[in-house]
Design a protein around this nucleic acid. Structure first.
Length: 492
RNA sequence: GGCGCGUUAUCCAAGAGGCUAGGAGCCGGUCUGCAAAACCGUUAACGUCGGUUCGAAUCCGACACGCGCCUCCA
């Protein structure tokens, strides 16, 4: 069993072999903090979160670095719009980012450096690039000379001639070649600046990620980000780091697919985006995470209420099963002794088989380029076997209890990797119910009053009146659930 | 225009030469005053046309449609 990952650099799934056995260095491009994050950011966050979690689960000592780009044109523009300074904007959206990611249950990276805390290191790298002839100074700016780096565009598989043919690149007179990109920008009046050998200015957008080498070394294992970063951002990162250090920058490049709306990329410019905050008002964080995991991380995923609803239904199925298990295990001591020789029923043996296969199959799925979607299939098969077992087992014997306790532990293990099932099942299920109830224009008191009226009618065998009340509530989207303990309600 | 990706049943979605993926839904059943919920069972598919092969959803070619990158983007 061995982990294989799809490497954008080679276009193939490759056996994952870290530079240093047992250790993994991983860097993911964070966000430019100038606005609230949307669902696309949520996807990137969740995708690399489960990659991080799985690598740790697989026994690696992982150093995970995710940066904040806290100085950039967009931040400055926003600050100007609001009549404030860049720092206020950056700090506000760093905090918002942290809140959103915490809501989504992302594990904290090992390090979360800010670009502005590493200006000195950035200047050093630029100086090395100039010394090696990869960069040049031009009127207070510094540009990277793409023609000086023969491997330029190796990641995206393009070539400079083609790029220029369809070019929408502005020919700046400060640049020698239209594809050259800024490493350092001289500051205009009123802009934030840092002192440098080339005058006051600030780093270009691409060089900020060069600080990865400060934490992970000149060569490290995994670099991740959204597919839209392949060109030019990651291409430029390679040019910068390999140009400065003269050795391979990253061994495995991983890129996640987009979130689409009606089969089109969600983006700010199209205006078809939803912020994480908006979506979390309607769906709970694990539902959103489950939705993201319902497609392979490299494929596009279509965001819609219908798909979110389906994700919620699927997650509900698993949580319901876990709630049933907890209910049975609640009163039991952990170490029930098996005193009599017993054997499992047919369905018990089938469940036992699912349990035995669980981790091997889960690991096989995750080892295959982090195929969480397939891993979820393993969970659902186990849920069905468990439900069958619970339905057909009237009395819990020690061996049955031990089996279902084992099932419960497996879901905790898998949940730890996928970032799911972190909530007590009954609490999660109740939360879903009350969240749905928030969308109904009938108060819980009114509903309760009608339920009492119906109970009275039913007590008097007036089923006609009882059914009328049920239909009335149903028309408002409320389902009544009769059980031996009385009547409860749920939102359709 | 260049480069790349995709097309799997009603919908979402894995799979990458022979092995029941899975979920949601429909339908049938258990339960119920009748229902609902829950649970069980069941259903059906690989864009089109060719080729390779004993065997193709899977490999190759063409075509159609959709999408992405080539400007800031996760």
């Amino acid at each position: 069993m061995a982990l294989r990952v799809y490497n954008t650099l080679t276009g193939e799934k490759e056996l994952f072999v870290p530079l240093v056995p047992g250790k993994v260095g991983m860097y993911v491009c964070g966000v430019t903090v100038y606005d609230y994050c949307h669902i696309g950011h949520a996807r990137a966050g969740v995708v690399f979160d489960i990659i991080y979690r799985y690598l740790k689960y697989a026994g690696y000592d992982v150093t995970y670095v995710r940066n904040y780009t806290d100085i950039d044109d967009k931040i400055i523009n926003r600050a100007n719009q609001e009549g404030t300074d860049y720092r206020t904007i950056a700090d506000r959206y760093i905090q918002a980012f942290d809140e959103d990611m915490a809501q989504l249950g992302l594990a904290k990276p090992t390090l979360e450096p800010k670009a502005t805390d590493h200006i000195g290191g950035i200047i050093d790298i630029i100086e090395r690039l100039i010394a090696k002839g990869h960069a040049y100074v031009s009127e207070g700016d510094v540009y990277y000379a793409v023609e000086s780096f023969p491997d330029y565009l190796k990641l995206s598989g393009r070539n400079l001639e083609e790029m220029q043919a369809g070019a929408r690149v502005e020919i700046g007179d400060k640049k020698r070649h239209p594809m050259d990109f800024a490493l350092w920008k001289g500051s205009k009046p009123g802009e934030p600046w840092w002192q440098s050998p080339w005058g006051s200015g600030r780093p270009g957008w691409h060089i900020e990620c060069a600080m990865s080498m400060e934490f992970l070394g000149k060569t490290f294992d995994i670099h991740g980000g959204g597919k839209d970063l392949v060109f030019p951002h990651h291409e430029n990162e390679i040019a910068q780091s390999e140009g400065a250090n003269g050795c391979q920058f990253v061994r495995y490049w991983l890129h996640n697919g987009f979130v689409n709306i009606n089969a089109e990329k969600m983006s700010k410019s199209l205006g078809n985006f939803f912020t994480i905050r908006e979506v979390l008002k309607k769906y709970d964080p694990e539902t959103l995470r489950f939705f993201i995991l319902s497609a392979h991380y490299r494929s596009p995923i279509d965001f819609s209420d219908q798909n979110l609803d389906e994700a919620q239904s699927g997650l509900e199925r698993i949580y319901s099963c876990l709630a049933a298990l907890d209910d049975i295990l609640k009163g039991q001591s952990q170490t029930a002794e098996i005193t009599v020789v017993e054997s499992l029923s047919q369905v018990g043996q089938e469940l036992q088989e699912k349990v035995d296969q669980f981790l091997p199959r889960f690991i096989e799925a995750m080892d295959d380029d982090f195929n969480a979607t397939q891993a979820l299939g393993v969970l659902f098969e186990t849920v069905r076997a468990t439900n069958r077992f619970l339905a057909e087992t009237k009395e819990m014997t020690p061996i049955s209890l031990s089996l279902i306790a084992h099932v419960r532990h497996l879901f905790v293990d898998a949940g730890g990797v996928l970032g799911l099932f972190t909530i007590v099942p009954d609490v999660w299920l109740a939360g879903i119910r009350s969240a749905k109830a928030g969308q109904i224009d009938l108060s819980p008191d009114e509903i309760e009053r009608l339920i009492v009226e119906r109970a009275d009618a039913r007590g008097a065998k007036d089923f006609k009146r009882g059914d009328e009340i049920r239909d009335l509530l149903l028309a408002k989207g409320i389902l009544l659930l009769d059980s031996a303990q009385g009547t409860t309600w749920n939102v359709k």
